[in-house]
Nucleic acid binder design. Structure first.
Length: 883
RNA sequence: GCGGGCGUGGCGGAAUUGGUAGACGCGCGUGGUUUAGGACCACGUGGUGAAAACCGUGGGGGUUCGAGUCCCUUCGCCCGCACCA
C-alpha cells in the first residue's frame, strides 16, 4: 500500500465504496432520537455549482454527520427545485427541451455535491418537475382552493416581457424584476392568488418560538407590516362614502384635505367639470408613469385638486379632495385623510400646494408657532374639541370609539403584506389543476384524476407565440371535459410559480416514495419539524413565509399536525471571488473602475504586487472591479481589484470540480469551514486553500508515522507527556463538540490544527509507542471525520479498522482528565499586565498574592507605593491597585 | 430616508462574553534540506525601541481596579426595504 498522500484517488475509492454500501441511507424508524438536517431546495442551473454554494452544504453536512455519530437517526435529503424560468429560457436558446436540460443539470449537481463528500441520502432524491412530485403540489393547491385560500382576481399586475406576470415582491425599486430583467410594466390581468393575508397575524405570532436569526424574524415582521388604527368614513357632497385607513385617528381634527389614488374608483364621480381636464391628464400620466417612475421614489410630490369636497365626520368641515400618486391604490382603501401637521408626506404636499397645516398635537415645549416640519412625536391634543388635553394614545382610542358610536368609523388593522400572486403564463411549471367551464365556471380537477400532466410541447417561446402562453397554444391539451357537467371545457393554462414547489418539499422528503398521498403522516410526525434548516439569506422573506403559510393552511385542512416547519434556521455567508492585483495594460478600464480583460491570452492575478507568483489566470473577457490603487511589478503597472460576487459572466467562478481534481474534496471541505465564520461574507483564497491542503498532508504523515522530523528523546518523563496528551485530547473533544453546536466551524478546524501541532511537537519514539498516542490518533480521526471525510476514512482503515470511521460513536470527554493542573497567573498593577507566572490551579488568593509580590518585575512597579486594593480572579489574574 | 450588519496585524480571522489582544491559517523574513516543481523542515513575525518600556482593536469622550467587549458621540464600508397613510 502506498503511503503517498493522493487525495484524488482516495476520494474516488471511498465515494464508490460508500455508494455501494449505502452508507448514508436514512435509518428505519427506531426509538433513537431523530434529527432532520435540511438545506434550502436548490434550483439546478446549467452552470453547475461553484465553491460558493458549498458554504451552504458543507457546514450542514458536518452537523448531519456529527449527529449521526452522536446516535441520532438523521434525515439528510436533497432534491431539486427544478421547475422555473432559467431552464425554460435556456431551452429556448439552445433549442432543447427543458425536461432534458433538467435531467442533465440535476445529475451534474448531484455529481458535484458528491465531489464535496456530502452525505445525502440519494434514495430520497426528489425533483419538483416530476409528475410524482407535482401531482402533490397540485393536491395542495386543491386543499387551499377548498378552503377559499386560492382565488382568481383581476387587477393591475406587474408584467415582465420575459417572465410574464410578477408578484409585487418580485419587482425591484429600480424597475427591474428579481432576476434582473428590465422593462417591467403593469397590465390588467386575471390571476391566481393565495390568500396569505388571512394568516398575517399568525405568521407574526408564530415567529416567537423559533430559533431563527433575529434579522430574519424582523424582516418577516416588517414584511407583513401590521398597522393598528382606524377606518374612518368621509362623505362627499354627492353622498358617496370615502373610507380611509389611518394609524393616527387622534389627528383627525388636523385633517385639512383628502387624497385619493389616481386609480381610485370614485375619482371620476368626485371630479367637477371645471377640473375634469386636469384630473384626466394626471390620471393618464400616472398610469403611464406607474410603469417605472412611481416605484423609483421621486421626493417631489405631485397631485391635482378634483374640485370635490368631503365632510370630516368629527367636526363637519368640508375637506378638499385631491388626487396624488403618493397614495397607493393597493394599500388600505386607496384614499387617505391628510394631516400635514403630523405626517411628513402630507406636510410636503400641503407646503407645495399651499394647504393649511393645522397642529392638533402640541409638542412638549411648543410656543404655538407654525411647524417647520411635521411633528410625529408625543404630546397632548389641541384644536380638537372635546378631546383637547388627551395624550396621543388615549386620543386615538377615544376618537375611534366616538366615531364607532356614531357609525362613521371603527378600529381597524391593515397589513403591508399582499396576497401571494402565483400565476405564471409560462410553460415550465406545475399546471394549475382547474378547468374552466362555460356553465360551471372554474372547476377543480378531482383528486383522483391528478396529476394534470404538463404536456411535452415543442414551442414554448413566448415571443414566437406572440404573447400567448405556451399552454394556451397547446389546443389538444386545453380542450377537455368539465369534471362537473362533462360538457366541453378548457384547462387553466397558467402554471404555478416556483415558490409553490418549495413550499412543501420538506414534507415530501419524510416519505418521498409515498404513492397514494403527498406524505405519510407517521413519517412527518417522526421527522418534522426540521431541526436545522440552512440556506441563503436572500430567501429570508418569500420562501420562508410561503412555506410557513402552506404549513398552517395544511394544518387547517386537517392533513398536518404542525404549527411551524423550521425550528432552527441559519443563513450561510456569501462567497466572493479572491481579490488581488493584475496587469493594467491587459485591461480595458471604464470611468466607473470596471475593467475587462482584452489580452487574448488572458492575464495573471497576484495576491499582492510583490507576490512571488500568480494565484490565478483570468481569461479574455474576465471582469474586475478596480479599487483605484495601483502599483508596480518589475516595471509593469499593476492595478488592484476588489473581491466581488462569483459570476459566470465575470469569469471568476471557482468550481468544486477544479478544486477536487487538484487538492481533493477534503481540502475543499476543510477550507470552506476554516475560511471564516459560517454566516459571514468572505473572499475565496487560493493560498488559504493551499494552507489547508498542506495541513491535511501533515496529518497524513503524522498518523502514518512518517514525520520528517528526526525523532529525538528530549521529553522529560514520558509519563508526564502522556498525561498532558490525554488532557489535550479531552480538551479537544470538548472544544470540537462545542464549536460544532455553535456552528463555529472555523474555530473547530483551528482546534484540530492546534492539536496536530501539539502532536508533532511531542512526537518521538517513546510517545509514539504509548497507548495514549494510539488513543489520541484514533480519537482525533473520529473528530476529523465529519470535516475531512475521505482522509479520515482512509487513515482509519490503515490503522487497522474494518468498520467505517463515520459509523464510530462520537467521543465523550472527561472533565477530570481535561482539567488543567496549572495556569498562567496574570499579574496586573493598576490594570496593566506586569508579570505572568505559571501557577497551580489549586492556589487561592493569598497564595496568588504572595506569588505576585515575590516577582521582581512586580516589585519594581510597587516601589514606594502601597497596595490599596486587590482584585483576584480564580484561575485567571490578580490585579494589584496601588497608590 | 427607514431598517440591519460590520470596522481588530500586510491578509482571512481568534479572544473563555468585562480579565493575557492578535489563537489558527495565509503572507513575509532567516536558516536548513532538497536543489525543475505552487515541495518539505526549524525558528521568527502588531508598531516604536539597544533595552527598560511605551503605543496599539476606525476617530473622540465616558463608566470601571480593568474595555476589542458596556454607554454616549462621530466617521467609513456593506446589505435589505422603498411614499404602506
Amino acid at each position: 500500500m502506498t503511503t503517498e498522500f493522493n487525495p484524488v484517488a482516495m476520494d474516488t475509492k471511498w465515494r464508490r465504496r460508500w455508494a455501494t454500501q449505502g452508507m448514508y441511507r436514512t435509518p428505519d424508524p427506531s426509538d433513537r432520537p431523530t434529527f432532520y438536517c435540511l438545506d434550502f431546495f436548490p434550483y439546478p442551473s446549467g452552470d453547475g455549482i461553484s465553491v460558493g454554494h458549498l458554504r451552504n452544504y458543507i457546514p450542514s453536512d458536518v452537523v448531519a454527520r456529527v449527529m449521526r455519530m452522536r446516535g441520532y437517526d438523521v434525515l439528510r435529503p436533497m432534491g431539486w427545485d427544478a421547475f422555473g424560468l432559467p431552464t425554460e429560457n435556456a431551452a429556448i436558446e439552445t433549442g432543447r427541451h427543458p425536461e432534458d436540460l433538467t435531467t442533465e443539470w440535476t445529475a451534474n449537481y448531484r455529481r458535484q455535491l458528491d465531489l464535496a463528500g456530502t452525505s445525502y441520502d440519494w434514495d430520497r432524491e426528489i425533483n419538483s418537475s416530476h409528475p410524482d412530485y407535482y401531482r402533490w403540489t397540485q393536491w395542495v393547491f386543491l386543499k387551499l382552493y377548498e378552503q377559499g385560500l386560492a382565488y382568481r382576481s383581476t387587477g393591475l399586475q406587474w408584467w415582465c416581457p420575459v417572465c410574464g406576470a410578477l408578484a409585487n415582491e418580485e419587482v425591484n425599486a429600480d424597475g427591474t424584476d428579481w432576476r434582473g430583467h428590465a422593462d417591467i410594466t403593469r397590465r390588467e390581468l386575471t390571476q391566481w392568488f393565495f390568500k396569505i393575508t388571512d394568516y398575517a397575524d399568525e405568521l407574526i405570532d408564530g415567529l416567537d418560538d423559533l430559533d431563527w436569526p433575529e434579522e430574519t424574524v424582523r424582516a418577516q415582521v416588517n414584511w407583513i407590516g401590521r398597522s393598528d388604527g382606524a377606518d374612518i368614513c368621509f362623505t362627499t357632497d354627492d353622498g358617496d362614502v370615502i373610507s380611509v385607513f389611518t394609524t393616527r385617528p387622534d389627528t383627525l381634527f388636523g385633517a385639512t384635505f383628502m387624497v385619493l389614488a389616481p386609480e381610485h374608483p370614485l375619482v371620476s364621480r368626485i371630479t367637477t367639470d371645471s377640473h375634469a381636464v386636469e384630473v384626466r391628464d394626471y390620471v393618464d400620466a400616472a398610469a403611464r408613469k406607474s410603469e417605472l417612475d412611481r416605484v423609483a421614489l421621486d421626493p417631489d410630490k405631485t397631485g391635482v385638486f378634483t374640485g370635490g369636497y368631503a365632510i370630516n365626520p368629527v367636526n363637519g368641515e368640508a375637506l378638499p379632495i385631491w388626487i396624488a400618486d403618493y397614495v397607493l391604490m393597493s394599500y388600505g382603501s386607496g384614499a387617505i385623510m391628510a394631516v400635514p401637521a403630523h405626517d411628513e408626506r402630507d406636510f410636503a404636499f400641503a407646503s407645495k400646494f399651499g394647504i393649511e397645516i393645522r397642529p392638533v398635537v402640541a409638542p412638549p415645549d411648543w410656543d404655538g408657532m407654525p411647524f417647520d416640519e411635521a411633528y410625529l412625536g408625543e404630546g397632548s391634543l389641541v384644536n380638537s374639541g372635546e378631546f383637547d388635553g388627551l395624550g396621543v394614545d388615549d386620543a386615538s382610542s377615544a376618537v375611534t370609539q366616538w366615531l364607532k358610536d356614531r357609525g362613521t368609523g371603527d378600529f381597524a388593522v391593515n397589513y403591508r403584506l399582499r396576497d401571494w400572486l402565483i400565476s405564471r403564463q409560462r410553460y415550465w411549471g406545475t399546471p394549475i389543476p382547474i378547468v374552466h367551464c362555460d356553465d360551471c365556471g372554474a372547476v377543480p380537477i378531482p383528486e383522483a384524476e391528478l396529476p394534470v400532466v404538463l404536456p411535452r410541447v415543442d414551442q414554448f417561446d413566448v415571443q414566437e407565440l406572440r404573447g400567448k402562453s405556451p399552454l394556451e397554444a397547446a389546443e389538444d391539451w386545453v380542450q377537455t371535459a368539465c369534471p362537473s357537467c362533462n360538457g366541453p371545457a378548457r384547462r387553466e393554462t397558467d402554471t404555478l410559480g416556483g415558490f409553490a414547489c418549495s413550499s412543501w418539499y420538506f414534507l415530501r422528503f419524510c416519505s418521498p416514495h409515498e404513492d397514494g398521498r403527498p406524505f405519510d403522516p407517521e413519517a412527518v410526525r417522526r421527522w418534522m419539524p426540521v431541526d436545522l434548516y440552512v440556506g441563503g439569506g436572500e430567501h429570508r422573506v418569500m420562501h420562508l413565509l410561503y412555506a410557513r403559510f402552506w404549513t398552517k393552511a395544511l394544518r387547517d385542512a386537517g392533513v398536518l399536525e404542525l404549527e411551524e416547519p423550521f425550528r432552527k434556521l441559519r443563513h450561510q455567508g456569501m462567497l466572493l471571488a479572491q481579490p488581488g492585483w493584475t496587469i493594467e495594460s491587459d485591461l480595458q478600464v471604464d470611468s466607473q473602475g470596471s475593467a475587462r480583460v482584452i489580452a487574448t491570452e488572458g492575464v495573471d492575478a497576484y495576491d499582492a504586487p510583490g507576490a512571488a507568483q500568480s494565484y490565478r489566470h483570468y481569461p479574455l473577457d474576465a471582469k474586475f472591479d478596480l479599487t483605484g490603487a495601483r502599483s508596480d511589478r518589475e516595471g509593469v503597472s499593476l492595478v488592484e481589484f476588489r473581491a466581488t460576487k462569483m459570476s459566470k459572466s465575470w469569469r471568476n467562478v471557482v468550481t468544486p470540480d477544479e478544486v477536487a481534481a487538484t487538492v481533493g474534496g477534503d481540502a475543499l471541505r476543510v477550507y470552506t469551514l476554516f475560511m471564516g465564520p459560517f454566516d459571514r461574507t468572505l473572499p475565496w483564497s487560493e493560498q488559504g486553500l493551499a494552507g489547508v491542503s498542506r495541513w491535511l498532508g501533515r496529518v497524513w504523515n503524522l498518523v502514518l508515522g512518517q514525520t520528517v522530523r528526526e525523532s529525538e528523546r528530549r521529553q522529560d518523563m514520558s509519563t508526564d507527556v502522556e498525561v498532558k496528551l490525554r488532557r489535550r485530547l479531552h480538551q479537544l473533544v470538548r472544544r470540537v463538540g462545542e464549536d460544532i453546536d455553535a456552528l463555529k466551524f472555523n474555530t473547530m478546524v483551528a482546534a484540530l490544527m492546534e492539536f496536530t501541532n501539539f502532536l508533532i511537537e511531542i512526537d518521538d519514539e517513546d510517545i509514539r509507542t504509548s497507548k495514549a498516542w494510539q488513543e489520541a490518533l484514533e480519537t482525533f480521526l473520529i473528530l476529523l471525520a465529519p470535516s475531512a471525510v475521505f482522509m479520515a476514512e482512509e487513515l482509519w482503515e490503515r490503522l487497522g479498522h474494518t468498520r467505517s470511521v463515520h459509523e464510530q460513536e462520537w467521543p465523550a470527554w472527561d472533565a477530570n482528565v481535561a482539567a488543567d493542573e496549572t495556569f498562567t497567573l496574570v499579574v496586573q498593577v493598576n490594570g496593566k499586565v506586569r508579570e505572568r507566572i505559571e501557577a497551580s490551579t489549586a492556589i487561592d488568593e493569598m497564595q496568588a498574592r504572595r506569588l505576585a509580590l515575590a516577582s521582581p518585575r512586580v516589585q519594581a512597579h510597587l516601589q514606594g507605593l502601597e497596595v490599596h486594593k486587590v482584585f483576584y480572579r480564580q484561575g485567571r489574574l490578580i490585579n494589584l491597585v496601588v497608590r
